[in-house]
Design a binder for these strands. Structure first.
Lengths: 211, 211
DNA sequence: CCTACCGATCGGTAGG
DNA sequence: CCTACCGATCGGTAGG
Protein backbone atom coordinates (compact mmCIF):
# COMPACT_ATOMS: atom_id res chain seq x y z
CA UNK A 1 0.00 0.00 0.00
CA UNK A 2 2.92 2.37 0.69
CA UNK A 3 3.90 4.59 -2.20
CA UNK A 4 7.54 4.00 -3.07
CA UNK A 5 7.41 6.13 -6.19
CA UNK A 6 8.90 4.71 -9.33
CA UNK A 7 12.34 3.26 -8.95
CA UNK A 8 13.04 1.64 -12.27
CA UNK A 9 10.63 1.51 -15.14
CA UNK A 10 12.58 -0.54 -17.66
CA UNK A 11 10.46 0.67 -20.53
CA UNK A 12 11.87 3.41 -22.75
CA UNK A 13 9.89 6.64 -22.64
CA UNK A 14 9.22 6.58 -26.36
CA UNK A 15 7.67 3.15 -26.13
CA UNK A 16 5.56 4.28 -23.18
CA UNK A 17 4.33 7.26 -25.19
CA UNK A 18 3.41 4.94 -28.02
CA UNK A 19 1.40 2.79 -25.65
CA UNK A 20 -0.26 5.83 -24.13
CA UNK A 21 -1.31 6.99 -27.57
CA UNK A 22 -2.67 3.55 -28.36
CA UNK A 23 -4.50 3.43 -25.06
CA UNK A 24 -6.29 6.71 -25.62
CA UNK A 25 -6.93 5.80 -29.26
CA UNK A 26 -8.36 2.43 -28.28
CA UNK A 27 -10.89 4.02 -25.92
CA UNK A 28 -11.89 6.59 -28.51
CA UNK A 29 -12.03 4.14 -31.41
CA UNK A 30 -14.30 1.96 -29.35
CA UNK A 31 -16.58 4.81 -28.35
CA UNK A 32 -16.74 6.85 -31.56
CA UNK A 33 -15.38 4.45 -34.13
CA UNK A 34 -12.14 4.80 -36.12
CA UNK A 35 -13.56 7.12 -38.76
CA UNK A 36 -15.33 9.16 -36.10
CA UNK A 37 -12.13 9.83 -34.14
CA UNK A 38 -9.65 12.53 -35.09
CA UNK A 39 -5.93 12.54 -34.37
CA UNK A 40 -6.41 15.84 -32.55
CA UNK A 41 -8.89 14.15 -30.20
CA UNK A 42 -6.37 11.45 -29.39
CA UNK A 43 -3.72 14.10 -28.80
CA UNK A 44 -6.04 16.05 -26.51
CA UNK A 45 -6.34 13.00 -24.27
CA UNK A 46 -2.58 13.24 -23.69
CA UNK A 47 -2.43 17.05 -23.52
CA UNK A 48 -0.58 17.23 -26.81
CA UNK A 49 -1.12 18.91 -30.18
CA UNK A 50 -2.27 16.70 -33.01
CA UNK A 51 0.91 17.12 -35.01
CA UNK A 52 3.03 15.92 -32.09
CA UNK A 53 1.62 12.42 -32.39
CA UNK A 54 3.53 11.97 -35.63
CA UNK A 55 6.79 11.93 -33.70
CA UNK A 56 5.62 8.58 -32.32
CA UNK A 57 3.39 7.03 -34.96
CA UNK A 58 3.48 6.89 -38.72
CA UNK A 59 -0.20 7.30 -39.38
CA UNK A 60 -3.63 6.98 -37.86
CA UNK A 61 -4.01 3.59 -39.48
CA UNK A 62 -0.75 2.43 -37.93
CA UNK A 63 -2.24 3.13 -34.52
CA UNK A 64 -5.33 1.09 -35.36
CA UNK A 65 -3.21 -1.75 -36.68
CA UNK A 66 -1.06 -1.88 -33.55
CA UNK A 67 -4.15 -2.12 -31.36
CA UNK A 68 -5.82 -4.74 -33.51
CA UNK A 69 -2.73 -6.85 -33.94
CA UNK A 70 -1.94 -6.87 -30.25
CA UNK A 71 -5.49 -8.00 -29.54
CA UNK A 72 -5.14 -10.77 -32.10
CA UNK A 73 -1.91 -11.85 -30.42
CA UNK A 74 -3.63 -12.11 -27.05
CA UNK A 75 -6.49 -14.21 -28.36
CA UNK A 76 -4.13 -16.52 -30.22
CA UNK A 77 -1.85 -16.95 -27.21
CA UNK A 78 -4.78 -17.69 -24.92
CA UNK A 79 -5.97 -20.53 -27.16
CA UNK A 80 -2.57 -22.07 -27.78
CA UNK A 81 -2.79 -24.64 -24.96
CA UNK A 82 -5.94 -26.00 -26.55
CA UNK A 83 -4.90 -26.29 -30.17
CA UNK A 84 -4.38 -30.01 -29.75
CA UNK A 85 -6.36 -32.30 -27.49
CA UNK A 86 -3.39 -33.86 -25.61
CA UNK A 87 -5.70 -36.18 -23.75
CA UNK A 88 -8.14 -33.46 -22.73
CA UNK A 89 -11.79 -34.41 -22.88
CA UNK A 90 -13.73 -32.38 -25.44
CA UNK A 91 -15.74 -30.85 -22.63
CA UNK A 92 -12.68 -29.81 -20.65
CA UNK A 93 -11.01 -28.51 -23.78
CA UNK A 94 -13.93 -26.40 -24.99
CA UNK A 95 -14.62 -25.08 -21.52
CA UNK A 96 -10.99 -24.03 -21.22
CA UNK A 97 -11.18 -22.25 -24.56
CA UNK A 98 -14.33 -20.39 -23.55
CA UNK A 99 -12.72 -19.30 -20.30
CA UNK A 100 -9.54 -18.19 -22.07
CA UNK A 101 -11.40 -16.24 -24.71
CA UNK A 102 -13.64 -14.48 -22.20
CA UNK A 103 -10.67 -13.58 -20.02
CA UNK A 104 -8.82 -11.90 -22.86
CA UNK A 105 -12.00 -10.07 -23.78
CA UNK A 106 -12.74 -8.75 -20.33
CA UNK A 107 -9.12 -8.03 -19.40
CA UNK A 108 -8.73 -5.94 -22.55
CA UNK A 109 -12.22 -4.69 -23.25
CA UNK A 110 -11.35 -1.69 -25.38
CA UNK A 111 -8.69 -3.29 -27.53
CA UNK A 112 -10.90 -6.33 -28.00
CA UNK A 113 -13.89 -4.27 -29.09
CA UNK A 114 -11.71 -2.38 -31.55
CA UNK A 115 -10.32 -5.67 -32.82
CA UNK A 116 -13.84 -7.00 -33.31
CA UNK A 117 -15.42 -3.97 -34.97
CA UNK A 118 -12.83 -1.64 -36.51
CA UNK A 119 -10.72 -4.03 -38.61
CA UNK A 120 -12.62 -2.98 -41.72
CA UNK A 121 -10.83 0.38 -41.67
CA UNK A 122 -7.46 -1.27 -42.21
CA UNK A 123 -5.77 -1.27 -45.60
CA UNK A 124 -6.66 -4.31 -47.75
CA UNK A 125 -3.44 -6.15 -46.92
CA UNK A 126 -3.69 -5.59 -43.20
CA UNK A 127 -7.40 -6.35 -43.22
CA UNK A 128 -6.68 -9.66 -44.93
CA UNK A 129 -4.07 -10.54 -42.35
CA UNK A 130 -6.44 -9.85 -39.48
CA UNK A 131 -9.32 -11.72 -41.09
CA UNK A 132 -7.04 -14.71 -41.61
CA UNK A 133 -6.14 -14.65 -37.95
CA UNK A 134 -9.77 -14.42 -36.97
CA UNK A 135 -10.49 -17.35 -39.19
CA UNK A 136 -7.81 -19.50 -37.60
CA UNK A 137 -9.21 -18.58 -34.21
CA UNK A 138 -12.60 -19.80 -35.34
CA UNK A 139 -10.93 -22.88 -36.78
CA UNK A 140 -9.59 -23.74 -33.33
CA UNK A 141 -13.14 -23.75 -31.98
CA UNK A 142 -14.34 -25.80 -34.95
CA UNK A 143 -11.61 -28.34 -34.29
CA UNK A 144 -12.48 -28.66 -30.63
CA UNK A 145 -16.14 -29.17 -31.47
CA UNK A 146 -15.31 -31.64 -34.22
CA UNK A 147 -13.20 -33.64 -31.78
CA UNK A 148 -16.24 -33.94 -29.55
CA UNK A 149 -18.61 -35.05 -32.28
CA UNK A 150 -16.07 -37.57 -33.60
CA UNK A 151 -15.60 -39.03 -30.16
CA UNK A 152 -19.34 -39.22 -29.56
CA UNK A 153 -19.31 -36.89 -26.57
CA UNK A 154 -21.03 -34.13 -28.56
CA UNK A 155 -24.20 -34.34 -30.61
CA UNK A 156 -23.89 -34.29 -34.36
CA UNK A 157 -23.86 -30.63 -35.24
CA UNK A 158 -22.53 -28.48 -38.04
CA UNK A 159 -19.20 -27.52 -36.44
CA UNK A 160 -18.90 -24.37 -38.49
CA UNK A 161 -22.31 -23.18 -37.35
CA UNK A 162 -21.74 -24.27 -33.75
CA UNK A 163 -18.38 -22.47 -33.63
CA UNK A 164 -19.85 -19.26 -35.02
CA UNK A 165 -22.77 -19.53 -32.65
CA UNK A 166 -20.41 -19.83 -29.72
CA UNK A 167 -17.95 -17.16 -30.80
CA UNK A 168 -20.66 -14.63 -31.62
CA UNK A 169 -22.14 -15.15 -28.18
CA UNK A 170 -18.75 -14.75 -26.49
CA UNK A 171 -17.80 -11.67 -28.48
CA UNK A 172 -21.13 -10.11 -27.63
CA UNK A 173 -19.94 -9.96 -24.04
CA UNK A 174 -17.68 -7.07 -25.06
CA UNK A 175 -20.83 -5.08 -25.76
CA UNK A 176 -22.29 -5.13 -22.29
CA UNK A 177 -19.80 -6.36 -19.67
CA UNK A 178 -18.54 -3.82 -17.12
CA UNK A 179 -15.67 -4.37 -14.72
CA UNK A 180 -17.76 -2.86 -11.92
CA UNK A 181 -20.82 -4.97 -12.79
CA UNK A 182 -22.27 -7.80 -10.73
CA UNK A 183 -20.67 -10.67 -12.65
CA UNK A 184 -16.98 -11.50 -12.78
CA UNK A 185 -15.42 -12.58 -16.03
CA UNK A 186 -15.05 -16.13 -14.76
CA UNK A 187 -18.67 -16.33 -13.64
CA UNK A 188 -19.78 -15.31 -17.09
CA UNK A 189 -17.37 -17.70 -18.73
CA UNK A 190 -18.70 -20.62 -16.67
CA UNK A 191 -22.33 -19.70 -17.33
CA UNK A 192 -21.72 -19.40 -21.07
CA UNK A 193 -19.73 -22.63 -21.10
CA UNK A 194 -22.61 -24.37 -19.30
CA UNK A 195 -25.17 -23.11 -21.77
CA UNK A 196 -23.18 -24.09 -24.81
CA UNK A 197 -21.89 -27.40 -23.51
CA UNK A 198 -25.41 -28.41 -22.54
CA UNK A 199 -26.33 -27.69 -26.11
CA UNK A 200 -23.55 -29.90 -27.39
CA UNK A 201 -23.18 -32.79 -24.97
CA UNK A 202 -25.08 -36.01 -25.66
CA UNK A 203 -24.99 -37.12 -22.04
CA UNK A 204 -26.73 -34.76 -19.68
CA UNK A 205 -23.94 -34.38 -17.18
CA UNK A 206 -25.79 -31.94 -14.93
CA UNK A 207 -23.62 -28.92 -15.58
CA UNK A 208 -22.94 -26.70 -12.63
CA UNK A 209 -26.02 -24.55 -12.33
CA UNK A 210 -25.50 -22.21 -9.47
CA UNK A 211 -27.46 -19.02 -8.97
CA UNK B 1 -41.18 -15.03 -65.16
CA UNK B 2 -42.53 -12.79 -67.96
CA UNK B 3 -41.62 -9.12 -67.67
CA UNK B 4 -44.77 -7.05 -67.61
CA UNK B 5 -42.95 -3.82 -66.87
CA UNK B 6 -44.37 -1.59 -64.19
CA UNK B 7 -48.06 -0.84 -64.47
CA UNK B 8 -48.92 1.02 -61.32
CA UNK B 9 -46.53 1.88 -58.55
CA UNK B 10 -48.80 3.54 -56.02
CA UNK B 11 -45.87 5.11 -54.17
CA UNK B 12 -45.24 8.82 -54.66
CA UNK B 13 -41.97 9.62 -56.35
CA UNK B 14 -40.69 11.68 -53.44
CA UNK B 15 -41.20 8.79 -51.06
CA UNK B 16 -39.48 6.45 -53.50
CA UNK B 17 -36.51 8.80 -53.69
CA UNK B 18 -36.32 8.88 -49.91
CA UNK B 19 -36.25 5.12 -49.81
CA UNK B 20 -33.65 4.98 -52.54
CA UNK B 21 -31.44 7.32 -50.56
CA UNK B 22 -31.90 5.21 -47.45
CA UNK B 23 -31.17 2.06 -49.40
CA UNK B 24 -27.86 3.36 -50.73
CA UNK B 25 -27.02 4.87 -47.35
CA UNK B 26 -27.77 1.61 -45.56
CA UNK B 27 -25.37 -0.32 -47.79
CA UNK B 28 -22.64 2.30 -47.35
CA UNK B 29 -23.16 2.72 -43.61
CA UNK B 30 -22.84 -1.01 -43.22
CA UNK B 31 -19.69 -1.22 -45.32
CA UNK B 32 -17.82 1.92 -44.25
CA UNK B 33 -19.65 2.94 -41.13
CA UNK B 34 -21.73 6.07 -40.58
CA UNK B 35 -18.79 8.38 -39.86
CA UNK B 36 -16.83 6.89 -42.76
CA UNK B 37 -19.55 7.62 -45.31
CA UNK B 38 -20.04 11.03 -46.91
CA UNK B 39 -23.27 12.49 -48.21
CA UNK B 40 -21.60 12.90 -51.59
CA UNK B 41 -20.90 9.14 -51.68
CA UNK B 42 -24.55 8.40 -51.04
CA UNK B 43 -25.52 10.87 -53.77
CA UNK B 44 -23.08 9.28 -56.21
CA UNK B 45 -24.89 5.95 -55.80
CA UNK B 46 -28.00 7.65 -57.18
CA UNK B 47 -26.21 9.74 -59.81
CA UNK B 48 -26.92 12.94 -57.94
CA UNK B 49 -24.91 15.81 -56.43
CA UNK B 50 -24.48 15.82 -52.70
CA UNK B 51 -26.48 18.98 -52.18
CA UNK B 52 -29.47 17.50 -53.98
CA UNK B 53 -30.03 15.01 -51.20
CA UNK B 54 -31.16 17.83 -48.94
CA UNK B 55 -34.31 18.23 -51.01
CA UNK B 56 -35.33 14.86 -49.59
CA UNK B 57 -33.72 14.55 -46.20
CA UNK B 58 -33.08 16.97 -43.38
CA UNK B 59 -29.66 15.75 -42.38
CA UNK B 60 -27.30 12.81 -42.53
CA UNK B 61 -28.38 11.76 -39.07
CA UNK B 62 -32.03 11.77 -40.14
CA UNK B 63 -31.15 9.19 -42.77
CA UNK B 64 -29.47 7.01 -40.18
CA UNK B 65 -32.39 7.35 -37.82
CA UNK B 66 -34.92 6.36 -40.49
CA UNK B 67 -32.94 3.22 -41.27
CA UNK B 68 -32.43 2.28 -37.64
CA UNK B 69 -36.00 2.96 -36.62
CA UNK B 70 -37.46 0.97 -39.49
CA UNK B 71 -35.24 -1.96 -38.51
CA UNK B 72 -36.40 -1.67 -34.91
CA UNK B 73 -40.01 -1.71 -36.12
CA UNK B 74 -39.42 -4.92 -38.05
CA UNK B 75 -37.84 -6.72 -35.12
CA UNK B 76 -40.61 -5.59 -32.77
CA UNK B 77 -43.35 -6.62 -35.18
CA UNK B 78 -41.78 -10.03 -35.75
CA UNK B 79 -41.78 -10.79 -32.02
CA UNK B 80 -45.29 -9.48 -31.29
CA UNK B 81 -47.02 -12.89 -31.64
CA UNK B 82 -44.74 -14.22 -28.93
CA UNK B 83 -44.99 -11.51 -26.30
CA UNK B 84 -47.44 -13.61 -24.32
CA UNK B 85 -47.44 -17.36 -24.06
CA UNK B 86 -51.10 -17.94 -25.05
CA UNK B 87 -50.80 -21.63 -24.39
CA UNK B 88 -47.58 -22.02 -26.38
CA UNK B 89 -44.98 -24.35 -24.87
CA UNK B 90 -41.78 -22.52 -23.92
CA UNK B 91 -39.93 -24.53 -26.53
CA UNK B 92 -42.37 -23.66 -29.30
CA UNK B 93 -42.41 -20.05 -28.23
CA UNK B 94 -38.66 -19.57 -28.08
CA UNK B 95 -38.13 -21.44 -31.33
CA UNK B 96 -40.67 -19.18 -33.01
CA UNK B 97 -38.89 -16.11 -31.69
CA UNK B 98 -35.53 -17.34 -32.95
CA UNK B 99 -37.00 -18.01 -36.39
CA UNK B 100 -38.71 -14.61 -36.49
CA UNK B 101 -35.58 -12.75 -35.43
CA UNK B 102 -33.37 -14.55 -37.92
CA UNK B 103 -35.82 -13.92 -40.75
CA UNK B 104 -35.90 -10.19 -40.15
CA UNK B 105 -32.12 -10.20 -39.97
CA UNK B 106 -31.56 -12.09 -43.20
CA UNK B 107 -34.40 -10.41 -45.13
CA UNK B 108 -32.97 -6.99 -44.25
CA UNK B 109 -29.29 -7.63 -43.81
CA UNK B 110 -28.00 -4.12 -44.38
CA UNK B 111 -30.59 -2.25 -42.34
CA UNK B 112 -30.20 -4.80 -39.56
CA UNK B 113 -26.43 -4.48 -39.46
CA UNK B 114 -26.75 -0.69 -39.36
CA UNK B 115 -29.31 -1.01 -36.58
CA UNK B 116 -26.98 -3.24 -34.62
CA UNK B 117 -23.76 -1.26 -35.04
CA UNK B 118 -24.37 2.37 -35.98
CA UNK B 119 -26.90 3.47 -33.36
CA UNK B 120 -24.11 5.12 -31.33
CA UNK B 121 -23.90 7.90 -33.95
CA UNK B 122 -27.43 9.05 -33.20
CA UNK B 123 -28.12 12.13 -31.07
CA UNK B 124 -28.48 11.35 -27.36
CA UNK B 125 -32.30 11.42 -27.45
CA UNK B 126 -32.58 9.19 -30.47
CA UNK B 127 -29.90 6.88 -29.16
CA UNK B 128 -31.82 6.50 -25.92
CA UNK B 129 -34.98 5.66 -27.79
CA UNK B 130 -33.28 2.97 -29.84
CA UNK B 131 -31.51 1.49 -26.84
CA UNK B 132 -34.83 1.32 -25.00
CA UNK B 133 -36.34 -0.56 -27.92
CA UNK B 134 -33.38 -2.93 -28.01
CA UNK B 135 -33.82 -3.52 -24.32
CA UNK B 136 -37.52 -4.37 -24.66
CA UNK B 137 -36.58 -6.77 -27.44
CA UNK B 138 -34.14 -8.47 -25.10
CA UNK B 139 -36.81 -8.39 -22.40
CA UNK B 140 -39.10 -10.42 -24.64
CA UNK B 141 -36.45 -13.13 -24.86
CA UNK B 142 -35.86 -12.98 -21.12
CA UNK B 143 -39.60 -13.44 -20.54
CA UNK B 144 -39.81 -16.44 -22.82
CA UNK B 145 -36.85 -18.05 -21.08
CA UNK B 146 -38.23 -17.22 -17.64
CA UNK B 147 -41.53 -18.85 -18.59
CA UNK B 148 -39.64 -22.04 -19.37
CA UNK B 149 -37.65 -22.08 -16.15
CA UNK B 150 -40.77 -21.34 -14.09
CA UNK B 151 -42.65 -24.15 -15.76
CA UNK B 152 -39.77 -26.56 -15.25
CA UNK B 153 -39.22 -27.17 -18.95
CA UNK B 154 -35.96 -25.23 -18.93
CA UNK B 155 -32.98 -25.63 -16.62
CA UNK B 156 -32.44 -23.00 -13.97
CA UNK B 157 -30.39 -20.36 -15.72
CA UNK B 158 -29.79 -16.67 -15.36
CA UNK B 159 -32.40 -15.45 -17.86
CA UNK B 160 -30.60 -12.22 -18.50
CA UNK B 161 -27.40 -14.03 -19.36
CA UNK B 162 -29.18 -16.67 -21.40
CA UNK B 163 -31.07 -14.03 -23.37
CA UNK B 164 -27.91 -12.09 -24.12
CA UNK B 165 -26.12 -15.27 -25.06
CA UNK B 166 -28.88 -16.13 -27.52
CA UNK B 167 -29.31 -12.66 -28.99
CA UNK B 168 -25.57 -12.11 -29.46
CA UNK B 169 -25.35 -15.39 -31.31
CA UNK B 170 -28.33 -14.53 -33.53
CA UNK B 171 -27.11 -11.02 -34.27
CA UNK B 172 -23.73 -12.40 -35.19
CA UNK B 173 -25.41 -14.05 -38.17
CA UNK B 174 -25.58 -10.60 -39.78
CA UNK B 175 -21.80 -10.66 -39.89
CA UNK B 176 -21.35 -13.68 -42.10
CA UNK B 177 -24.61 -14.79 -43.73
CA UNK B 178 -24.89 -14.38 -47.51
CA UNK B 179 -28.09 -14.77 -49.51
CA UNK B 180 -26.18 -16.82 -52.08
CA UNK B 181 -24.53 -18.99 -49.43
CA UNK B 182 -25.22 -22.69 -48.79
CA UNK B 183 -27.62 -22.22 -45.88
CA UNK B 184 -31.08 -20.70 -46.03
CA UNK B 185 -32.22 -18.39 -43.28
CA UNK B 186 -34.63 -21.02 -41.97
CA UNK B 187 -31.98 -23.72 -41.90
CA UNK B 188 -29.77 -21.49 -39.81
CA UNK B 189 -32.66 -20.53 -37.56
CA UNK B 190 -33.49 -24.19 -36.90
CA UNK B 191 -29.86 -25.09 -36.23
CA UNK B 192 -29.41 -22.20 -33.83
CA UNK B 193 -32.72 -22.96 -32.13
CA UNK B 194 -31.60 -26.58 -31.71
CA UNK B 195 -28.29 -25.58 -30.18
CA UNK B 196 -29.80 -23.13 -27.74
CA UNK B 197 -32.86 -25.17 -26.81
CA UNK B 198 -30.66 -28.18 -26.12
CA UNK B 199 -28.76 -25.95 -23.77
CA UNK B 200 -31.94 -24.91 -22.00
CA UNK B 201 -34.26 -27.90 -21.95
CA UNK B 202 -34.17 -30.23 -18.96
CA UNK B 203 -35.58 -33.17 -20.88
CA UNK B 204 -33.43 -34.28 -23.77
CA UNK B 205 -36.10 -34.23 -26.42
CA UNK B 206 -33.78 -35.36 -29.21
CA UNK B 207 -33.83 -32.12 -31.18
CA UNK B 208 -33.86 -32.44 -34.94
CA UNK B 209 -30.26 -33.09 -35.86
CA UNK B 210 -30.08 -33.29 -39.56
CA UNK B 211 -26.89 -32.90 -41.52
C1' DC C 1 6.95 18.40 -28.98
C1' DC C 2 5.69 23.06 -30.86
C1' DT C 3 3.71 26.59 -34.49
C1' DA C 4 2.28 27.17 -38.89
C1' DC C 5 0.46 25.42 -42.63
C1' DC C 6 -1.02 22.17 -46.78
C1' DG C 7 -4.83 20.41 -49.91
C1' DA C 8 -8.86 17.66 -49.44
C1' DT C 9 -13.13 16.79 -47.72
C1' DC C 10 -16.87 17.32 -44.49
C1' DG C 11 -22.20 18.48 -43.64
C1' DG C 12 -24.97 21.80 -45.03
C1' DT C 13 -27.09 26.42 -47.20
C1' DA C 14 -28.39 30.05 -50.81
C1' DG C 15 -30.54 30.83 -54.69
C1' DG C 16 -32.29 29.48 -58.64
C1' DC D 1 -32.13 18.90 -58.73
C1' DC D 2 -28.26 22.06 -60.09
C1' DT D 3 -24.02 25.38 -59.32
C1' DA D 4 -21.57 27.82 -56.18
C1' DC D 5 -20.18 28.34 -51.93
C1' DC D 6 -19.76 28.46 -46.47
C1' DG D 7 -16.82 27.55 -42.20
C1' DA D 8 -14.98 23.62 -39.91
C1' DT D 9 -12.25 19.85 -39.69
C1' DC D 10 -9.56 16.12 -41.60
C1' DG D 11 -4.72 13.49 -41.84
C1' DG D 12 -0.41 14.82 -42.38
C1' DT D 13 4.20 17.72 -43.36
C1' DA D 14 7.93 21.43 -42.80
C1' DG D 15 10.96 23.28 -40.00
C1' DG D 16 12.56 24.20 -35.86
Amino acid sequence: MADFGLVEQGTPIAETRRRQIEGVASALFRERGYAGTGMREIARGLQLRGASLYAHVGSKEDVLFSIVERAADRFAKALSPYLHADGMSPEYRLRGMVRAHVRVLTDNLEDSAVFLHEWRFLSPERRSEILARRDSHEQAFRDAIAAGTTGGEFRLVDERLAARNLLSALNGIAGWWRADGPLSADQIAEAYADLHLSGLLTEVSAPTTRS
